[in-house]
Design a protein around this nucleic acid. Structure first.
Lengths: 224, 224
DNA sequence: GTTAAATTTGACAAAATTGTTAAATTTTAT
DNA sequence: ATAAAATTTAACAATTTTGTCAAATTTAAC
């Protein structure tokens, strides 16, 4: 592996490149298991356990590696955080593509999206909140969407408007429909500790409630 | 003012007592403007600007006071954070009481709640997220609701069920109705940076969308 | 106005956290 | 098997952040 150097120290520069654009250099060397290990551990700490401000030591301990390996592979703590965030963004886009791209009927698209989200939320309950807090911290970090996604989103909005004409969903600006849908789906999961406290529900009760969300949302969103 | 001492240092112990239970000692001495100033500055930093991890120095600077006054008045950084959190909890309860206590018809109760929340969100957009992250951090901090609130909440649920019988709202477990309502109201505000990015909306567009939320929510929630 | 109490300040200590470096170890290619 | 490259480690330096203390200043009471 090629070694870059800066003021005499060595870095796994190759890794930076490789992992930034996996398509170009996809030769998986045995060594970057550590790289993956660290980034996955960080992801788990952030998304699973909600430790949004984990120190490098905490991350290293959780991963069972030497702390300075974080510097070796990611240059700085911040760079690691950013990387996890970027992966999160990609996942967001994947999700959005899913709902927008397939040519299923609207209702099935939405069902698919609900299932996908709820499944993911089981493993990563704090994903959305982490993304949010990072965004707040970094004070704007504009997503630049690909043109074809924008185009498909437009197309999806038209589909929604058609449904509204048919009367299967309430008439409103498509974006408002999306906000309703997304809110009812994500909020109860993302804000769980907040809501569970506010409504004084125990874990079992809340799990049950979440499991019923899919039907409730569909019933609320579709008028038939 | 009585001074407590610990290892020779002096603390405004009286303040701790006074502000913990304002009813008992409500003699507002001129000096605790500083106390209030610090706590309000912290609140603004957290709720307005989303600086959830502000250092004591940052808070002190924003308040224009010496950093160590935070130790003098609040003992530790953590204690200050907890205090802000506790005030937030009280506000949550106030809000819940509002919706549950009044004997307005359901629809007006909900409208009142929406207005109240949206107004508050204008000054404190990150309030809910701060509360959430604190809860996640502290790993559970059970609200202990007063009995009469629980009672009134039950009563409110019965009212909801009556509306469902009448057919003005969809039939579903009352808690699910509440989750729908709360989600559609809070999520678009609390997750604004997240959503604004995802849907690629500029500030003006998003403001407009928020201003339309009230009508949209009511339309979605009431079937007539 | 003087005194005592309360508040504010700056200097300092302690702790926590990150980043650097060179040396040690492991892996890979020949 | 050996040499070069890559990885890991531990010691160290630098920085950031919190908390303590005693002295200085301000305020309130008499």
């Amino acid at each position: 592996m090629f070694l870059g150097s800066k003021k005499g120290s060595t870095f796994a520069l190759d890794n930076f490149v490789k992992h930034k654009s996996q398509t170009i250099m996809s030769i998986q060397k045995k060594e970057d298991v550590t790289y993956e290990l660290i980034i996955n551990t960080a992801k788990n700490l952030f998304f699973k356990e909600g430790k949004f401000n984990a120190t490098t030591q905490e991350i290293a301990d959780a991963a069972g590696v030497n702390r300075t390996l974080i510097n070796y592979y990611f240059r700085s703590r911040n760079a690691l955080f950013d990387l996890v965030f970027e992966e999160g963004k990609k996942e967001d886009e994947r999700r959005q593509r899913m709902i927008v791209m397939s040519d299923l009927p609207i209702r099935e698209k939405l069902e698919l999206f609900i299932d996908y989200f709820l499944a993911q939320a089981k493993t990563y309950p704090y994903r959305e909140v982490y993304m949010l807090t990072q965004m707040i911290k970094d004070e704007f970090c504009v997503y630049d969407k690909k043109e074809h996604i924008k185009y498909m989103t437009q197309k999806f909005y038209v589909e929604l408007e058609e449904e509204m004409e048919k009367g299967t969903i309430q008439k409103m600006p498509p974006i408002q429909f999306m906000l309703n849908f997304i809110s009812m789906l994500i909020f109860p999961v993302a804000m769980r500790p907040f809501l569970q406290n506010n409504f004084e529900l125990d874990d079992k009760e809340y799990d049950k409630i979440i499991s019923e969300r899919k039907e409730v949302i569909l019933k609320t969103v579709f008028t038939n």
